[in-house]
Amino acid sequence: MNPFTIHKGLVAPLDAMHVDTDQIIPKQFLKRIERTGYEDVLFYDWRFLDDGKTPDPDFEMNAPRYAGASILLARDNFGCGSSREHAPWALHDYGIRSIIAPSFADIFFNNCFNNGMLPIPLAAEEVEKLFQQTRATEGYSLEINLPDQQIICPDGAKIPFEITHFLKQRLLNGWDQIGLTLRHEAEITAFEEKRAAARQG
């Protein structure tokens, strides 16, 4: 997994609450057995007209000014519903590296970190301000500084954000979580043996 340290990128708005993972990637695209190649089906039902090809001009992210965005701005409870990791895969394949929203659904939030992506929960007022600034300024970009836990706005304003120590270290180092846990293999074995013994006694 690639480390996430400092990321600067164009911001795109997705102005809806409770965006569920069925919207992020509809079910018909979950039949593949690969981990990549989902960029063209991200937000499929919203992004394209009924022919499945023509970009829907009413979908805000489709505006040319947001092409190449790597930071997504969203509303409450982003990523709710199904546990499908295809949702962060599709966002990642599209180029998104960080998502800023007032709150995230639990499983989606965890899935992001397993793909080197940084979801940032911010107060709703902060997110609202970012929505306004993004729409007001073409080319609006943010710098996300994970070591300092700050979002740096184009005017130099800094927005601090919270992240747990462990999640931060995982992203900064691009750690493989399985490798990290397997360092404790002896403890896992000891746990299993202790339980087996207790069951027999």
Binding site: S83, N110, N111, N114, F166, Q177, I178, T181, L182
Partner: peptide
């Protein structure tokens, strides 16, 4: 009992454990 993503499925297959808060 709870749902997990595919990376976590792999983690459980490999370690029979999960990282949790």
């Amino acid at each position: 009992a709870h749902g997990i993503g595919t990376s976590e499925v792999e983690h459980v297959l490999a370690t029979q454990t999960l990282r949790q808060k």
